[in-house]
Each structure stands twice: as C-alpha cells, then as structure tokens.
Amino acid sequence: MEAYGGRRGQAERDAITVEIGYALCSAAFAAVVLFGAVAGPALIFALPDTMEQVSLRAGLVLAAVLFAVRVVSVLVRFRQTSQPSQPGRTRPDS
C-alpha cells in the first residue's frame, strides 16, 4: 500500500485475497482434525449417553475456537510482515 493511505494495487489485493483463502482453508482443516480427534470416539464407539454428549459438545466448541484463533493469527501475521514494494529491494532507500 502506498504511504499515507493510498489505494492498493492489484498485486496487494491479490495477496490479501490469497492470504484470506489460506487462513480460512487451513483453519477449516485444523478444526475438522480437532473435532475428529475429540468427538471421533463418540461417533465410532458406543459410549454412555452423557459421555457422548460431552465429547460432541467439547469437539464443537474446541473446533470453533481453534478456527477463529487460526484465522486471526494467520491474518495478523500477514499484516505484520514487512514486504518490499519491489522484488529484490528490502530497504525503503535502496
């Protein structure tokens, strides 16, 4: 982005779009894996009703929290990385 609130170029908009897509896909994958690990035994094996309900609810809550944390952490990390405006140039005065 240009200094002092200038408009974003197409490359910057594309980079943001790709990063958002990566954040959502990686968060969804991590949430599904966590849900499977926590609630999977309740879905596969015959457990007591109380244990099954606790396992399913815990899996849903933990998966939702992990999804949100993953999306936020990826997007915050992307925002904090300083990217050069031109390839091969790493300093503003170069």
Rank of each mutant, 00 (worst) to 15 (best):
R79P: 00
L56P: 00
V69D: 04
A39W: 06
R79M: 08
V38F: 08
D93W: 15
G40I: 02
S94N: 13
Q80P: 03
L24D: 02
A27F: 07
A63M: 04
A64V: 02
R91S: 13
D93F: 14
I20Y: 09
L60D: 02
G36M: 11
L24M: 05
A68K: 03
F45C: 05
V65I: 05
A68V: 10
A23Y: 06
L24Y: 07
V54H: 04
T50F: 15
L66P: 02
V38E: 08
D49E: 12
Q80E: 15
V32F: 05
I20N: 06
Q80R: 11
D49G: 04
E19P: 06
R70K: 04
S82I: 11
P41A: 07
G59V: 11
T50A: 14
T17D: 15
V54A: 12
A63D: 07
E19Y: 00
M1G: 00
M51D: 12
P48D: 14
V32N: 01
L34H: 00
I44F: 13
A68P: 07
R13E: 11
M51F: 14
G5D: 11
R7N: 15
S26L: 14
V69E: 01
E12C: 11
L24G: 02
V72N: 02
D49H: 14
M51T: 15
Q80H: 10
E52A: 15
L60S: 04
E19W: 08
S73D: 13
G5E: 09
T50V: 12
P41C: 05
S85D: 08
G36D: 04
G6V: 07
A27N: 05
